[in-house]
Design a protein around this nucleic acid. Structure first.
Length: 274
DNA sequence: AGAGATACCTGGGAGC
DNA sequence: TGCTCCCAGGTATCTC
């Protein structure tokens, strides 16, 4: 399931294949994913040089020279691959971009939680209006103890849901929220407002460390996620508590427990996490 | 305003 | 074996 490290990995792998090329034709095999795919037939998306490929939160932005852009979200099961136009289409490859030079970029999205949106940018390199609600990037310096502490005052929801809230900080999903809270020694069900300054310091550091480490090893492959070349992320081998209910804590051997927060399962060590 | 619930969707695993 | 049921996940939308 693609979280920030996975999307970062995909974006980095995609970039050299798209750089300076243009889309000659876009082919869709389904009417809509999360949103209708009809806007992809806009003529202004064709034969226009690809100016930039970047990431914002869990969204990939492919910007064209005319300031039109695609926003791609992989949902929970989406992947993108670059293959020759002649390659056989996989069952769930719903969108195929044909590039000059004979290669295609293909969006495989079995569970259809992903989407492709078309938008118009105000300037080169600008964030689309569609993503203006997003909070800070977790790997940027503005996600720090002061920010987290101040944003979380008066917040009565759980700290886990708080750091998974896209309007606060982007790209932290269930896996990395779970792992970061373990690394910081904080129970996921604590209210956000109950965190001290010191705990905000350890939590922001833990979020950054977990995300950076995962990017280094190519993300986390649980079931569906693969990068552009089909390789699997190796962070799954470094998970400490995610999905390990009933197993021993790698630090203190206490049995890992699970609770549900915001409808999502949340594993934690009852002894290491206060 | 914030927080919780729910819908969306399908593959995979468990249980019968 | 084959069926049904349930779960996983992020985001948008709703309700309180």
């Amino acid at each position: 399931m693609p979280e920030l490290p996975e999307v970062e990995t995909v974006k980095n792998a995609l970039s050299p294949h798209l750089d300076g090329r243009f889309f000659e034709r876009i082919e869709t095999h389904i009417g809509q994913l999360r949103y209708s795919l009809a806007p992809l037939y806009d003529k202004e998306l064709r034969n226009e040089k690809i100016a930039d490929v970047r990431r914002r939160g869990r969204y990939i932005i492919i910007e064209l020279d005319n300031l039109k852009a695609f926003i791609i979200h992989l949902g929970m099961s989406g992947s993108i691959r670059i293959v020759e136009a002649a390659a056989e289409r996989k069952k769930h490859e719903h969108v195929i971009w044909h590039m000059n030079g004979g290669m295609t970029m293909r969006f495989d999205c079995p569970r259809r939680f992903g989407f492709v949106k078309v938008c118009k940018l105000k300037a080169a390199g600008a964030d689309p209006q569609e993503l203006s609600h997003l909070g800070v990037e977790p790997l940027e310096p503005d996600f720090d103890a002061v920010y987290l502490y101040e944003a979380s005052r008066k917040r009565t929801g759980s700290i886990k849901n708080f750091i998974m809230n896209n309007s606060i900080v982007v790209g932290v999903g269930n896996i990395y929220a779970t792992e970061a809270l373990f690394a910081a020694g904080i129970k996921p069900m604590r209210t956000a407002a109950s965190l001290t300054r010191a705990e905000c310091e350890s939590l922001t550091k833990a979020v950054k460390a977990v995300l950076k480490r995962s990017i280094e090893v190519g993300g986390t492959t649980i079931a569906d996620y693969k990068s552009v070349d089909g390789s699997e992320g190796k962070f799954v081998h470094e998970l400490q508590v995610y999905g390990k209910k009933g197993q021993s804590c790698p630090v203190c051997n206490t049995e890992i427990e699970m609770t549900r927060l915001g409808g999502r399962s949340s594993c934690y060590c009852p002894k290491c996490q206060k």
